[in-house]
Amino acid sequence: MKIGIVVYPGSNCDRDCQHVLADVLGLDAELIWHDRTDLAKYDALILPGGFSYGDYLRSGAIARFSPVTESVISAAQKGVPVLGICNGFQVLLEAGLLPGAMLVNDSLHFRCHSQYVRVERDHTPFTYGIEPGTVLEMPVAHGEGNYYLDPVDLAELEEKGQVIFRYVDAEGRATPEANPNGSVNNIAGICNEQGNVVGLMPHPERASEAILGSADGLKVFQALIKFWEAGQ
């Protein structure tokens, strides 16, 4: 399996993702500079965190027009697994691959801390084999992570099982106190209708080695390996 990590100017978690995929999991993971459009050789794509093109406008709003994003959209439509983490999630929203939008955190501040997240569904490549209800500890680090979707579409999103991760407390309860940014329904991550495109605000790559406080995030990448091996 060959994984491509999209690097926009201003991405800053690209090397972190590569470290976890290549050094921790021993996978073949390459960085893809934003001007490239040939993504055919990649079996999965990751859009990492950071501040693409500075994010001086809405987060991800410029990245949406990047040459590489056009190719990410085509790959996603062909069913290639695509994971957007943090800024990558914001890009997927702006690119229309996932529904909804991000508002500024309800605290109005950037928030960086450890966070509990509950896995809701296991039908995506990035949650494959993870028992729904499993609570993972993965940090958040963002200023615009307040996920919003209008009530009608939100009900449909929930109904279709597209909510993949939810902010919870240590006991797995989705309380208002456990919500770090004001997201509707404590939503931390969602997928598209097909399930191959997933976006989440927490950083699994920052929780992939015990020395950094948690190795729970590794499960997200291991799910992709299992999914691949199962030939799904």
Binding site: G49, C112, H113, G213
Partner: peptide, 16 residues
């Protein structure tokens, strides 16, 4: 203060 700072990026922060 420090929760407003990204203190984890680069994956080296063993004691935050």
């Amino acid at each position: 203060i420090y929760r407003q700072y990204d203190h984890m990026v680069q994956l080296n922060t063993v004691v935050p």
